[in-house]
Design a protein around this nucleic acid. Structure first.
Lengths: 348, 348
DNA sequence: CTGTTAGCGCGTTCAT
DNA sequence: ATGAACGCGCTAACAG
């Protein structure tokens, strides 16, 4: 029925082992036989059996990518970059590696489930994107799982997430704290003193670090902490939209809003506009990430640019073994304050 | 070294076959032994060997998703939806299926390469998103490849692409022509007569169909064809930005612009603003797709809403065998004209 | 440089 | 309801 290695071997009048060697290109094979094999492959329209190959070799060409949601450009950009860099030397026949994208929805359970599924597939590597969930129990379970993966030879790279010590995983961590601080420093320098903060979900490192940066800036400026000016919500547009109502109720004289990310910021902008408030004349707004649409918002959004593509590409290369891990297994990736038109000095 | 079925069997004092049956849940197993097996699995921290399982069963739990670029929300949204629907009954141990996302970059060669790679993996199904490339040679090669896949038992679903007759592939085709026509009809009804069109790349069904809809509307209104008012470019922001310069040079008195999609439209808006033209006062602009950011553009973008999530979800269910194929293997998915603030009657 | 020999770990008959 | 035996298709020693 289906063509196998043996069929190709027979056609090319060599042994199956030789065909395998030609296909994987790892052993020296005489040019003449090589060509004979390749034409037999072409003539029979032979396609290697991946599962059989992976079984025998005890490793696959699959690279897992864990994301919260691939529909969110924040993750889409990283996943795309990872995918573009994972193929190359080291892979099986042809060096092509396949990206298995797993939407965790930010759920700890699904994160673990997908890691088990990737372990089952004997994935060559796993890239985990996005911030971590700060829950001791989950952290322990995740750490154990990562260790089992790395022990089994799966390369694990954390992209945009703090290091996981003693797991064997490499980490490219975003400097969310520094970015958060730079953003609030910018608003402070413009003269803002009443700043509302729309934070992400509780218990996520990304949320906490960005918020800590905000607080650092405030306290460095000698401003008192005003916890009532921080509201939490999801990393989505609706959250930003709703938060404006709450924040304005708590302090109608806010002159600036910092959002957890650009998507939230856009929701906030929409809510402000709906109330007849002008940006940045009445209220300044800042985001985080610098997603592609942020430059096209009106006014163009002040934000912190995260090199999502570059970080993803590097994670992909590390996952593919094409680039060494960063020294100590950890590299910090900085964001860059990107001032545009949505922030300006407060009125008066 | 690594725990195998046999180890679990020994621990549970049953045969390997029984363990397999428990894990796959396809055969009746006594409740008592079932529990014994499951606790042995837990105690030994056993993880099924996917490649071995796939080899023996001659099928895998992998579902391929071909996209132009997963970083583009147009594809990200569909891929996310596919992914959310592919798990469930019919899959191996646990029913969990994994999504293999392949960025083709719109290249015919990579499209074929990835299909071969998925064939190699014995993928359970393949979902191909986005428009097709109109090249006879490639169409033939692709058709042959699809037929080989379906013959081998891989379910193939085209999502947002016209049917591929005689390949065994199901198709959910977007009504790009109807959407394109509705959009231009809308502009015509507003009174526009000089309409520029920024089309996508040549040789793509999506480009051609949207453009044909545009021409249908013009000719139904008795307007002469003005080929010089159509420029082609990529489906990206830069293309829209550049096209404005070209179109305005060809006719400085254009009152409306139709873009290949929302991303292109945003680039066009930026270029218009840069020239001091106001939208929609001086020039109306319309997009296509209704991506999430389009409602937040200022002014909010008039566009044709494509149910990307729903279409992807349906494609996922069909791929997973959880929903029957549409009658005749083809379903047309309509877009919905969504009028917002970027279009208005021309001045004067 | 090439052939021979063993498995890789699991699913699936066929018995019982 | 359970076990024994075989084979899925390939890679990796080991010879030569």
């Amino acid at each position: 029925m289906t063509v196998t290695l043996a069929d190709v071997a027979a056609r090319a009048r060599v042994s199956a082992a030789t065909v395998s060697r030609v296909l994987n290109g790892n052993y020296p094979v005489a040019e003449a036989t090589r060509e004979r094999v390749l034409s037999a492959v072409a003539e029979l329209d032979y396609v290697l059996n991946g599962p059989a190959s992976s079984l025998a070799a005890a490793t696959s060409d699959l690279v897992g990518i864990l994301v919260n949601d691939i529909a969110d450009p924040f993750f889409g950009i990283m996943a795309s970059a990872v995918q573009s860099e994972i193929s190359g030397p080291g892979g099986r026949a042809g060096g092509e590696r396949l990206a298995v994208v797993c939407n965790t929805g930010g759920s700890p359970e699904r994160e673990l489930t997908y890691l088990t599924l990737l372990q089952r597939q004997r994935a060559a590597a796993v890239v985990i994107t996005g911030g971590a969930i700060e829950d001791a129990e989950h952290a322990a379970a995740l750490g154990a799982k990562l260790r089992r993966l790395t022990d089994a030879g799966t390369r694990v790279v954390l992209c945009g997430r703090p290091p996981a010590p003693d797991t064997g995983a490499a980490a490219l961590a975003f400097d969310n704290r520094g970015g958060g601080r730079a953003l609030t420093d910018h608003l402070l320098a413009l003269g803002h003193r009443r700043i509302g903060y729309i934070a992400g979900p509780h218990e996520r490192t990304t949320t906490r670090h960005r918020l800590e940066g905000h607080h650092e800036a405030l306290s460095a400026a000698g401003l008192p902490a005003r916890p009532e000016l921080t509201v939490h919500g999801a990393y989505d547009r609706a959250s930003g939209f709703q938060a404006i109502g709450e924040l304005l109720r708590r302090d109608p004289d806010l002159t600036a809003i910092v959002a957890a990310n650009d998507t939230v910021a856009l929701g906030a902008c929409a809510a402000l506009r709906e109330r007849g408030l002008r940006i940045p004349d009445d209220v300044s707004v800042a985001g985080f990430d610098d997603l592609p649409f942020s430059v096209d918002a009106t006014p163009a959004l002040t934000t912190v640019r995260l090199p999502l593509h570059d970080a993803g590409a590097r994670a992909g290369r590390i996952a593919a073994g094409r680039e060494p891990e960063p020294p100590g297994g950890v590299a910090v990736v900085s964001g860059e304050l990107t001032v545009r038109d949505s922030t300006a000095p407060p009125r008066g």
